[in-house]
Simulated scan of single mutants.
Amino acid sequence: MTLYEFNILSLEEKQATVWDRGTFLDNYITKDIRINCYAIDKFFVELVYDAGHNTITEVRSFKYGNSLDKYAPKF
């Protein structure tokens, strides 16, 4: 799957793809949010959770860049 193919999916399809094909890498936790990072083929996906409601609020996908910086100390 390419990043483009992933990005055109619906929110529900993106979530299902992460559960089926994603490899969990790490999480980033603050007081208000929790972000889980997954790898799928040659790109990364972040699932952003609302800690108070325990729901996924956003799915972010990327190949590289600043989005990986918050995980760098652990790698």
Rank of each mutant, 00 (worst) to 15 (best):
A72Q: 09
D50V: 03
R34Y: 13
E5D: 15
M1E: 08
W19C: 00
K14T: 02
F44Q: 01
N66T: 13
C37Y: 09
K31P: 01
T2R: 03
Y49T: 02
H53F: 08
Y38A: 05
Y71A: 01
R34K: 15
R21Y: 09
Y71H: 08
N27V: 02
E13Q: 15
L47E: 10
Y38E: 05
E58H: 06
L68M: 13
E13C: 04
L3M: 14
T57A: 07
A16K: 13
D32M: 08
F44I: 04
F43W: 04
N36E: 15
E5P: 00
F75T: 05
R60S: 10
T30N: 08
Y4N: 12
K70W: 07
I8W: 08
D41K: 12
T30K: 07
Y4G: 06
Y71D: 00
K74S: 10
L11D: 06
L9C: 04
Y28P: 00
S67T: 00
K31Q: 12
L25A: 04
F24I: 03
L11S: 09
D41H: 12
E58G: 01
L47H: 02
F24L: 11
T17G: 01
I40S: 04
T17S: 10
S67P: 00
E5Y: 02
Y64N: 14
T2K: 06
C37P: 00
T57Q: 08
F75D: 04
F24V: 03
F62C: 11
Q15V: 14
E58D: 11
R34L: 15
P73D: 07
V18N: 01
F75R: 07
T23A: 10
L11K: 10
E5R: 14
N54H: 10
Y49W: 15
G65Y: 06
F75A: 04
N7L: 15
G52N: 14
I29V: 13
Y28W: 14
D26R: 04
L9V: 02
K14P: 00
T30F: 05
V48Y: 07
L25Q: 12
C37I: 09
T17K: 09
L9T: 01
L68F: 08
K42F: 13
N36T: 15
D32T: 10
R60V: 14
F24Y: 15
T17L: 09
L47M: 13
G65K: 06
G22E: 03
F6R: 04
